[in-house]
Design a binder for these strands. Structure first.
Lengths: 176, 176
DNA sequence: CGGCATCCAGTCTGATACTG
DNA sequence: CAGTATCAGACTGGATGCCG
């Protein structure tokens, strides 16, 4: 299974979601249950229902997983550095992240290892071990990793261009 | 501060990252510390260093935050449903997520509330309360939320189109 | 109807020390 | 050099019960 966003334990209670034909709007969104929805809004929901598999549910897991990579504190930075200068050794990677990352703290060995292993399992990063003493290990981006990196840059650059808007849009909620 | 990716507690130890001119490649990536880097790779790293602020460090926080939203189990689904049929009441939203999400379990009240509050604080979702009895609360996307939604769809659709590749790229790591 | 308060298991992350 | 092992604090997310 592909479950990157871990479900919280619990002894898997059984939920009874009504089994419905996915292309039958009437049973997917029964009018009696959603009396307020009609016309354009109902149409839009039915169109969403046909494409939602890419975003919701288990089939959406790969998508959430890849997006979560970008939201992670270190992963996108690792991908960027590798993209710029791969192949890199473990310690080169660690020092470059420290130099380029503009973070107030370095990445811990533990985190770097965890993230690299995860990326390797996902097939986005290649690990090349030369069995010598002292050990020599090189990391680089796989072709798929390069392509994901390039695609995600487009969204990231868009967000970066609108950074001030995002910061300005933040509000304090009244707490009364 | 804008710290969506929470730093793990700890009493903020002080790290001494060397203060360097960001446009001085020699001091940013001192050759004696990275003897293996030269030529194209060094150039690429220096170019990365100039744009990294959008991705790394504190200034990258808004970006990671927005990406993390997409990686979250529920948030993108909430945005999609709101985009299709806003304004929606709390319970309509909850039921639509259950109907459309193809998840094996419904979103819990706690999570729906937390996610909506977070989106509201980020200025991506608007909350409209009518003080009547019983309460009537409507949620909708803010203009910024609509734009982020549209932009993120591009990345998400790209990942979805290559879903099989991502699944195929996954590997088991040898464990010895 | 639209929440909030509480509890609790599971997970994430960093610090530190040790190793082939 | 390139990690592994262990520990502990903080955070996540679901279940449940209560409230105006």
């Amino acid at each position: 299974m592909f479950l990157p966003v871990p479900l919280c334990g619990a002894r898997a209670p059984v939920y009874h979601r009504p089994m419905i034909s996915e292309h039958d709007a009437g049973s997917l969104i029964p009018p009696e249950e959603f009396p307020a929805l009609s016309g354009k809004r109902l149409d839009a929901l039915c169109r969403l229902a046909e494409t939602i598999e890419v975003n919701g549910g288990d089939r959406g897991a790969p998508i959430r997983h890849m997006c979560a990579l970008l939201g992670d504190r270190w992963t996108k930075l690792i991908l960027l550095v590798l993209n710029a200068a791969a192949p890199l050794r473990y310690s080169e990677l660690q020092r470059l992240i420290w130099r380029l990352g503009k973070d107030e703290r370095p990445i811990s060995q533990r985190m770097l290892t965890l993230r690299l292993r995860s990326l390797e399992r996902d097939g986005l990063v290649d690990r090349n071990v030369q069995c010598v003493m002292p050990p020599h290990v090189e990391y680089s981006l796989s072709p798929l990793g390069q392509r994901l990196n390039a695609q995600s840059d487009r969204l990231i650059n868009w967000i970066a261009e609108h950074r001030e808007e995002f910061i300005a849009a933040r509000r304090e909620l009244p707490e009364d």
